[in-house]
């Protein structure tokens, strides 16, 4: 019992340190010069575009009703992001959907929401001043909790205006059904997958990246098993076209455009790493013994990191803590 409690305490402290390092690195990035950052636009398919710059990828849906964004990168990039949006559409930004609450994905919420507007109707027009004068910001309600936990939270104008607490929330915008699907305890406890059904595109947030091992934000309820569950959900939702390619396109939180086959490789890798560590935990190995077996060695050159806010060592430690607490 005492050992389990100690493990939980260590796990919590470790996760809190990781989250602090993430927020600190984001804070230092905020002081960085973003002058050289370019926002590149890639048409994915249908109404969907991917905006790539510094921070999390932005998914953009454009149509007659307006512009919908999934995530907003860092605040200092908002003018460049807005300029990139204007190369695609001259309609107002009407919706911002957040995949989770980390600053590299929601930093531009306030700026971009204030540049937009939404159509207010019914009782809301008379009840709230300013209704309709900015874009709606939609996220799982735990995103608000995550923001509140941050030392330097984004301005309140960038907080979600429309939260959901159920398994999913639906939207119909620009002639397209959009499913916002909560993924419990994955990268954080507030993750949403965004599925554009007509365009056949899924935006994953940091549940899936092509640039490194996933950051398991245990301080905010993140778990590897939740990430694996979410990746398996993506595989269930995605349907590849001929020769196991294209079909449903998948925009990761960071990195390049992908499809089901890329998510599959990532899911396979994380499952294999989990199984290796789980086997050692079942054998009664300590964390240092598990580390000595180098359970990620064959993937480290591609996905590992020796420095930065999320190292391979921290990744292994987070999985060990999660599995040994079960």
């Amino acid at each position: 019992m005492i050992i389990n409690n100690l493990k939980k305490i260590r796990s919590t402290i470790s996760a809190a340190i990781c989250f602090y390092l993430l927020v600190s690195s984001v804070a230092s990035l905020a002081q960085q010069n973003f002058d050289d950052v370019e926002i590149n636009v890639l048409h994915v398919q249908g109404n969907i575009y991917m905006l790539v710059g510094e921070g999390g990828n932005i998914t953009l849906q454009a149509g007659d009703q307006g512009v919908l964004l999934v995530d907003t990168m860092y605040a200092p990039l908002s003018d460049k992001v807005f300029a990139a949006i204007r190369t695609i559409s001259d309609k107002p930004i009407t919706y911002i959907l957040n995949t989770h609450g980390h600053p590299d994905h929601i930093g531009g919420n306030a700026n971009l929401a204030m540049m937009g507007s939404n159509i207010a109707g019914g009782n809301t027009i008379d009840l709230f001043a300013g209704t309709g004068e900015q874009a709606k910001i939609v996220a799982h309600e735990n995103v608000v909790t995550n923001i509140l936990a941050q030392d330097n939270p984004i301005p309140i104008e960038g907080w979600p205006t429309d939260t959901y607490y159920t398994a999913k929330k639906d939207l119909f915008f620009n002639g397209e059904a959009i499913m916002i699907i909560h993924q419990p305890n994955a990268h954080t406890d507030g993750d949403s997958l965004i599925f554009f059904r007509r365009s056949d595109v899924i935006s994953t947030g940091d549940i899936f990246t092509t640039t490194g091992y996933p950051f398991i934000d245990a301080a905010n309820g993140g778990t590897l098993q939740g990430i694996l569950n979410a990746l398996n959900n993506v595989l269930d939702m995605a349907v590849p076209a001929d020769r196991q390619e294209n079909g449903t396109m998948i925009i990761p939180g960071h990195g390049r455009l992908t499809d089901e086959a890329d998510v599959l490789d990532y899911r396979d890798m994380l499952t294999i790493i989990r199984d290796r560590i789980a086997y050692r935990v079942d054998q009664g190995d300590s964390l240092s013994q598990v580390k000595a077996t180098e359970p990620t060695f064959d993937y480290d050159v591609r996905y590992g990191a020796d420095s930065g806010f999320w190292t391979t060592e921290q990744f292994v430690e987070a999985i060990y803590n999660e599995l040994s607490a079960q």
Partner: peptide
């Protein structure tokens, strides 16, 4: 293509 474009078989 740029590095952020999709990879194929």
């Amino acid at each position: 293509p740029p590095e952020y474009a999709a990879h194929t078989w």
